[in-house]
């Protein structure tokens, strides 16, 4: 069963990353943490963008909402984990509520509406100074741990978020909801006629795609001890997941994770040498990807090696 194999892969991957602090230095742990964050964002985007086929640019909205919720609650004296969970839950509820209003839009209109969500939230976070500290940003309590323990702790925290996102994807794939989303992606009108409650399925997918970015945002805020609106509502947070999924292959289960790893490699290898051209290099990657590898790098590699791809599973 490919289902069992995928679960085994997930467990194995989590185990390897969890063991990382025993052998690796703090720099590697930081990379691992970013990898887990990227993987969580890409897996989440894949639910709405890959499975349901709705080009969402709302990841930054969910990430920022989770980050600010977690930060504000921790400033109010909440412990980290409950504050984190509240951030994820609020992001999910926000997506469900807004989804009802914008998920009837298709194509470009949905893309724009989702993009505007992050802009509105960023503006609000900047304006509501009494709550968010406005443009000055918000400081979070620094955990009383020595550096390596801290690096290990946040790696494990982010790994937990990514593992949840991975498990959700696997559960979703074989489920009734997952099937409904595939129908919607391929022909939404026909899906409705076959009895798929398209509005409910899309809203659920949007909410699921929001929870893990919300959690990741909270973990990020706790990890960096400081957030400000342009940082956690950065539009690149909405674009990178899409790039990672395109890199790994749209609508597959582990493609997004592979894409997350590849993007991180690019970042480390190329961008460190061209710090000021960070965004431009990402732009080049995107252009090359869209023009020459529309089915993802993995698919191209498979074809290059002459093996037949199994197609989108």
């Amino acid at each position: 069963m490919s289902g069992l194999r995928d679960w085994a892969l997930l467990v194995l991957g989590v185990a390897v990353l969890a063991a990382l602090p025993m052998v690796a230095d703090n720099y590697t742990l930081r990379l691992g943490t970013v990898f887990c964050m990227y993987a969580a964002l890409a897996l989440s985007w894949n639910v709405i963008g890959g499975f349901a086929g709705y080009p969402s640019f709302a990841t930054a909205a969910f990430f920022g909402l989770g980050a600010y919720t977690c930060a504000i609650l921790q400033s109010a004296g909440w412990p980290m984990l409950p504050a984190l969970a509240a951030g994820g839950a609020l992001a999910g509820l926000f997506a469900a509520a807004v989804g009802g209003a914008i998920l009837h839009l298709r194509g470009h209109y949905f893309a724009i509406a989702s993009l505007a969500l992050a802009e509105v939230l960023r503006e609000l976070a900047t304006k509501l100074e009494w709550l968010t500290g406005g443009g000055m940003g918000l400081n979070l309590p620094v955990p009383a741990m020595e550096l390596h323990a801290q690096a290990a702790f946040f790696l494990h925290l982010m790994l937990g978020v990514a593992a949840l996102a991975g498990a959700a994807t696997l559960l979703l794939r074989g489920s009734r909801l997952g099937f409904a989303l595939r129908c919607i992606q391929q022909n939404e009108d026909a899906a409705g006629m076959l009895g798929v409650d398209t509005r409910r399925a899309k809203t659920l997918a949007f909410a699921i795609s929001a929870i893990f970015p919300g959690l990741a945002g909270g973990a990020y805020a706790s990890w960096t001890h400081y957030i400000e609106p342009p940082d956690v509502f950065d539009v690149l947070l909405s674009v990178k997941p899409l790039v990672m999924v395109l890199l790994g292959g749209l609508g597959t289960v582990f493609g997004p994770v592979v894409g997350a790893g590849l993007l991180l490699l690019f970042e480390e290898a190329v961008w460190r040498s061209f710090l000021t051209l960070h965004a431009a290099v990402l732009g080049v990657i995107i252009v090359v990807l869209v023009l020459f590898l529309p089915n993802g790098l993995m698919d191209a590699t498979r074809r290059l090696l002459g093996r037949r791809g199994r197609g989108a599973a």
Binding site: V284, V287, V290
Partner: peptide, 16 residues
């Protein structure tokens, strides 16, 4: 998604 992403990538290049 593809055309949108393409012009986004081009924009990152030009703007940067």
């Amino acid at each position: 998604l593809m055309t949108l992403t393409l012009t986004f990538g081009l924009d990152l290049m030009l703007n940067n």
